[in-house]
Write a protein that binds this DNA or RNA. Sequence first.
DNA 1: GTCTATAAGGGGATAGAC
DNA 2: GTCTATCCCCTTATAGAC
Lengths: 200, 200
Amino acid sequence: MREAHEARILAAAEDIFAQFGYNGAAIEAIAERAGLSKQNMLYYFPSKEILYHRVLENILDLWLEKMTLLAQSGEDPASMLENYIRGKFEISRAHPNGSKVFANEIINGAPHLRDYLRKNLIPQLEADIALVRGWIDQGLMDPIEPEHLFFTIWAATQTYADFSAQIELALDKDSLDEADFRKAGDFLTHIVLKGTGLKG
Amino acid sequence: MREAHEARILAAAEDIFAQFGYNGAAIEAIAERAGLSKQNMLYYFPSKEILYHRVLENILDLWLEKMTLLAQSGEDPASMLENYIRGKFEISRAHPNGSKVFANEIINGAPHLRDYLRKNLIPQLEADIALVRGWIDQGLMDPIEPEHLFFTIWAATQTYADFSAQIELALDKDSLDEADFRKAGDFLTHIVLKGTGLKG
DNA sequence: GTCTATAAGGGGATAGAC
DNA sequence: GTCTATCCCCTTATAGAC
């Protein structure tokens, strides 16, 4: 019972925070979307701040769990990198609102998130960078700067969630479907693998 | 006099809107940064909404003026595309806060901007896409989907402005300098030109 | 053009009955 | 756990003197 309510509230909060940002989101709007009164929702999440933290946490746990290059199952660099890219697109497709909440937070300087990122994201990134450097040292890959490879992949995959309004406008569609994400994945995979010298 | 005040207010507004979003930005904070009282600022810009519109307008005019592939002076596709990429990086470097205001707006569904983009951005994009299609038809370039090329370039260049908090954390720097932007530009240029078959 | 004062509303949070 | 009622602060915007 409590669990079901919390889940509905968290889902509603993700939507509203994504659309209006932290300050623009009214907790009353979140409660309404979850089918509760504002006061009742405050029984489950005593403050807006606490609710927001929980939403951010959920997204980040999901991301960090799945999104390390090292966790990819491929045998060779090209397929590991492709798996990583496809995986990030899949998260963007499946959780666009979570991505938007995160994006809002980072754009505003990551006031709630700085420490969490330093402790959790950065170490993963360092390990992935070391892996790529190894590939370069072995002559498997062009001598690019691995940091910028990751920044570019993150940006290019998340843009289909975060900037969907602009992309929908450009593609003249009401919403992006799986085919759009597949094409985007095809494109990025193509230029990353070929562009880094890993393939063709 | 009026002009000088308006310019200071607009600059301050860009900073504050970038950091706090539309709703989170207090006009008093903007006024303070501009060195005026809130009431006095309201003499120049009668409402928050009007001020925000002016800030958005300024950014977009700058972007649209400079950022069409067709406007690049290069002779061949590779140098035109490189100029385009370098130009977008330069705007990100020079106007990070403008980029953030724009990003906030798009993430939140572009409520103030939808019509403007449809009228101004989309036609430019269509023309640029047609140009790239021409290169593909002439066999100068791999048969990629031009839309996604542009989405990727936009995302990868703007991320150094919008997500600077994350990137600074990853690079362990207080702020990004020209060298960082140059390296980012080198990387993106390399994988785009090589990845699309335009070079090397 | 700039100031003091204040109206008007929204929204987060609490109190307390049931 | 849910409801009614309410407090209180923050913020936008206006009124009016100088």
